[in-house]
Write a protein that binds this DNA or RNA. Structure first.
Length: 485
RNA sequence: CGGGGCGUGGCUCAGCUUGGUAGAGCGCUUCGUUCGGGACGAAGAGGUCGCACGUUCAAAUCGUGUCGCCCCGACCA
């Protein structure tokens, strides 16, 4: 390795040595985000926003396909509205930012910058709903929210973040529960099939529940350091918010009822999960379906021969027409320099065209998911075959990244019946620890105090008569325990 | 919010102990030669040392405060 390359590579510390340092460097060097002058707030740069746009496109299509529409509600929420649901306000109080002044005037009522929008949405739904015929309301909003966080990291936890929040209202508990689970499955599908993140999914314990919810469900991914990342949540709010915000309707049986509402969200935190799960020592590895640039075309020119630039430009046009997201990198830099830079940025496929290729009507296609020198990492293919080969290669990279993450999740999931082993696994961040559990808040608190791990999701118990692995009381469910982000 | 670390050209850092008015490498600009895994030559530009106050004839350097970033913990959906 040349001296210059060694130096460049050191800009990103090895992922295995220090995941935190690697993660921050990968986000910054990959040009996804920049720190801003505002504490805890990052600038999402064009490449990072491209990732977000792909998340939006894929999720939005799934929301539309399940009958939802987009709308937009105000950023500012009057305090009097926010405080209507007691548990909700109590849960969010420590992290709400307030507007207390407009221009030079002190406000008579302070305005919360939304930490989430149940309050304002609920208030509006109360106005819109009169009859069971007005239900369900199925609305999603793409928005920013602010939560006054004490410690922040790009994507994983920022004071202001982008997300989508769905808010629905239904005429029956069954319909609300069905909606909650339907969205959970949309999230699972997106995480696994688009972000290439295998997840565990299920109900949250009472202690991990969204403030004010009747039941919370989530998808949980596993990061390389053995910590879980809650990547999407879907809440069955029961009638709690309908009561607080007075969302009532006359049902078919002519009685007045409170609606059943749900809310659900995925934020740019999912991008953090994708970055951490798939990246390697060279930097990012973006799953093709999420990649702002699926393939970068790099011409190799000679001072007396610039035909490669032409070849790249015309191939790029063909690929764009065929629906691929491609870019030509014709900057005046060494090819090797460009390879490294696009490696850092995680572009799934690189297409090199040099004078030899121009003569032979071929290209060299290199894939980011394999290491340098690994079989199939870099292959020469006929120019005419590029669209087909690219489509297949992208699909294969998508599969391969998912398979690697899936193998990691499975290798770091432990089913145990031994109390000591359970505590050790939790304490050492071994991964997802699957036990029969009593579902008692006190038990979860004890485990947390001893190991820093909490339940991630809880599923029904198949067998009967089991004891809780953590405390010995009768088990009522199976639960994955892990430390979490 | 507690413990620890760090803020010096765009980046990585040296200089601080023992105050004397700022350096290196990379990057950047221009021109030329190059180009199949981070090229080379020549000539240039760029920093009131995070910010504020204090001590001093004199502060990147000493003191206090403050803002921000990183790590660990607590808290957090």
């Amino acid at each position: 390795m040349s001296e210059a390359l060694e130096r460049a590579v050191k800009e990103i510390p090895p992922k295995s040595a220090d995941l935190s340092a690697w993660y921050t460097a990968a986000c910054l060097k990959g040009e996804l985000v920049s720190y801003s002058p505002v504490r805890g707030c990052v600038v999402l740069r064009p490449y990072g926003f491209g990732l977000w746009e792909n998340l939006q496109r894929e999720l939005d299509a799934r929301f539309k396909a399940t009958g939802h529409e987009n709308a937009y509600f105000p950023l500012l929420i009057p305090e009097s509205l926010l405080v209507k649901e007691a548990e909700h306000v109590e849960g969010f109080a420590p992290e709400v930012a307030w507007v207390t002044q407009g221009g030079s005037e002190e406000l008579t009522e302070r305005l919360a910058i939304r930490p989430t929008s149940e309050a304002i949405v609920g208030t509006m739904y109360a106005q819109w709903v009169e009859s069971y015929r007005d239900l369900p309301i199925l609305i999603n909003q793409w928005a920013n929210v602010v939560r006054w966080e004490k410690a922040t990291r790009p994507f994983l936890r920022t004071m202001e973040f982008l997300w989508q929040e769905g808010h629905t209202a239904h005429a029956s508990a069954a319909q609300a529960r069905e909606e909650t689970l339907k969205i959970l499955d949309v999230y699972r599908d997106f995480a696994e099939n688009v972000a290439a993140l295998p997840v565990y999914f299920g109900k949250k314990s009472a202690g991990e529940r969204f403030p004010g919810a009747a039941e919370t469900f989530s998808i949980e991914a596993l990061m390389p350091d053995g910590k879980a990342l809650q990547s999407g949540t879907s809440h069955d709010l029961g009638q709690n918010f309908a009561r607080a915000y007075d969302i009532k309707f006359v049902d078919a049986d002519r009685t007045i009822k409170y609606a059943y509402t749900t809310s659900w969200g995925v934020s740019w935190r999912m991008l953090g999960g994708l970055i951490m799960a798939h990246g390697d020592d060279r930097g990012l590895r973006i799953p093709p379906k999420m990649a702002p640039i699926e393939a970068v075309l790099i011409p190799i020119v000679r001072s007396n021969d610039r035909r490669a630039v032409e070849a790249c430009t015309s191939l790029s046009a063909r690929l764009s027409d065929a629906g691929f997201r491609v870019r030509v990198d014709a900057r005046d830099e060494q090819p090797g320099w460009k390879y490294s830079e696009w490696d850092v940025r995680g572009v799934p496929v690189r297409i090199e065209i040099g004078p030899r290729d121009v003569e032979a009507q071929t290209v060299v296609m290199a894939r980011r998911d394999r290491d340098k020198g690994e079989p199939g990492q870099r292959e020469s293919i006929a120019l005419d075959d590029v669209p087909t080969a690219l489509r297949e290669t992208l699909a294969d990279i998508q599969r391969s990244l998912y398979a690697q993450a899936k193998a990691f999740l499975e290798a770091h999931t432990y089913v145990t019946t031994g109390r000591d082993e359970f505590f050790d696994l939790c304490r050492t961040r071994a991964g997802m620890v699957d036990i029969a559990w009593c579902e008692r808040a006190e038990c979860e608190a004890n485990v947390k105090a001893a190991t820093a791990a909490t339940t991630r999701v809880v599923r029904p118990l198949a067998e009967i008569g089991l004891a809780c692995v953590a405390c010995g009381e009768p088990a009522k469910a199976r639960a994955y325990f892990a430390q979490s982000y």
